[in-house]
């Protein structure tokens, strides 16, 4: 009886407000969730070979000074992204961030977990930290998209999530809108440690949704390293 009622109610809701794909806006099929299969398949992996440090794709094998790396010094030990920030991946992230659909977060977290197992399987992480948002922006958006992604990963990978460690103390402009020379300056001093104890001598996995110039995660890594973390790896869902 209850099952029939829920089924009817779901049918009613589905009729008037059909579930739509977060990336392309098409109607989702019965077994699809949030992002449709077509869009998921159109996500493009970052092409190998990668820059061993920043994870930029299509770098010639022996090139040492990768142009995509952030300005020296680089504080993180390695950075990786699952897909390229274009097409449906871009749309999905935009939907998550600007159209306020938190349910997209876990959808991105899952492929990141699979990537972690596959590509970074020999690393062991002591803790996961999402890149924080400034409190004013988080309040406006209602959530931190990096944290949503990180939550799902932490759940799947059984790694403790410690979002309380890092805070953003400066409200910064979006990196994409700045000329390269100003980017570093823009995020300088944006982060601070609230408590250093949980990261002392630990290997940290830093999570964000998009890797654009690397300056943001670099600055966050600097703070973590200075706070005593022994190793900081960065994993984002997408990169430019």
């Amino acid at each position: 009886m209850l099952r029939t009622c829920t089924w009817l109610f779901k049918g009613f809701i589905d009729f008037f407000f059909p579930p739509l794909c977060a990336a392309c806006g098409e109607r989702l099929g019965e077994d699809e969730e949030v992002v449709c299969d077509t869009c998921r398949q159109s996500f493009t992996r970052v092409p190998k070979p990668l820059c061993l440090r920043c994870g930029a794709g299509g770098v010639k094998a022996k090139q040492k000074d990768c142009k995509a790396c952030p300005e020296k010094p680089v504080f993180f030990d390695l950075a990786r992204a699952v897909v390229l920030f274009r097409g449906s991946a871009r749309e999905a992230i935009h939907t998550l961030k600007y159209k306020t659909r938190p349910e997209v977060g876990p959808v991105l977290g899952r492929p990141m977990f699979l990537y972690l197992k596959r590509e970074l399987g020999d690393e062991t992480f002591d803790a996961i930290i999402p890149v924080p948002l400034h409190s004013s922006r988080e309040r406006k958006r209602g959530f931190n998209q990096a944290e949503l992604v990180a939550e799902e990963m932490a759940r799947l990978a059984h790694i403790p999530l410690i979002p309380e460690v890092l805070v953003r103390i400066k409200s910064t402009k979006q990196q994409t809108q700045l000329p390269p020379e100003k980017r570093r300056q823009n995020v300088a001093g944006a982060f601070a440690l609230r408590i250093a104890e949980p990261i002392l001598g630990k290997t940290i996995l830093l999570i964000d949704d998009v890797y654009t110039t690397g300056n943001t995660v670099n600055e966050a890594s600097r703070v973590l390293k200075e706070g005593g973390a022994s190793r900081v790896c960065v994993l984002t869902f997408a990169r430019v």
Partner: peptide, 24 residues
């Protein structure tokens, strides 16, 4: 109510659909 309900049901609702729903 549709918008508030969308929080509860985790279903994206577009403004135009809620408007149409109300009119209906």
């Amino acid at each position: 109510s549709c918008f508030l309900g969308s929080f509860l049901l985790k279903r994206q609702v577009e403004a135009i659909s809620t408007l149409a729903f109300a009119a209906f």
